[in-house]
Amino acid sequence: MMEGSDLSIFAKKKPQPMASTAPLLRVEGLTKRYGARIGCADVSFDLYPGEVLGIVGESGSGKSTLLSCLAGHMAPDAGRVIFDTAEGPRDTREMSEPERRRLARTDWAYVHQNARDGLRMGVSAGGNVGERLMAVGARHYADIRTTATDWLGRVEIAPERIDDRPSAFSGGMQQRLQIARNLVTGPRLVFMDEPTGGLDVSVQARLLDLLRGLVREMGLSVLIVTHDLAVVRLLADRLMVMKGGRVVEQGLTDQVLDDPQHAYTQLLVSSVLQV
């Protein structure tokens, strides 16, 4: 049985210093082909603890393929994805399926664009959050419920909604619930695929504010795929621009957006409508 004090470690994590020397994730030469067509080609980068890396590009640029390969949802054709596990750096491609699944429910989290893909729609809000806790060994019902309530509060869902099913929630609430479900176990690396896509702008702002706070408080490293340059400007430390499956430019987010070097990035930045 798990004590409440043990559960509380999932709710809060000490921020890790930004200047930490070992990368949390090291990607080398990652390539994925769909037959003759390129999904993504020769992608390499390092992600350090506490860093938020934005991946932008138009539809079909390979950014979602890249995220799927990194998260282990898709098998790449070549390259290495080295994650700094508790036992030291390991290539996730060489892990067994159970090992990878264990990683996916402990150190990793994946926030889908469509909350329905990341939630269990037939289970209550509290159950959605509690389920992930149980998957890592929590058994004490009252503790699980307390932690779930705490997390619903952190993502601004009223405690009296704990027994409601997500199908009764608005799109923004579903997305916040998905985030709570993902972060309750205190992951170190979060994959996000268009987390604000399909939401009203007012709801987007609320979600961005929430994500920024969680990144800071939990010291999360985040890989966020989006086509929304305003979102990455406010959320990402670094930016990677993809076109035709390849990374054409990467650097500090504001530098890439304000002084883009590659023709494609210049086109992308100059195509944004000013509000």
């Binding site: 930004m18 504010d209 406010l234 670094r238 500090l252």
Partner: peptide, 23 residues
């Protein structure tokens, strides 16, 4: 980039002419 980020956090402040914040 991450060295510049660390520099901006600890050492180098910038007051631009425009305020850019999460609404």
């Amino acid at each position: 980039p991450r060295e510049v980020i660390a520099l901006r956090r600890q050492t180098l402040g910038y007051v631009s002419q425009f305020l850019r914040v999460v609404p």
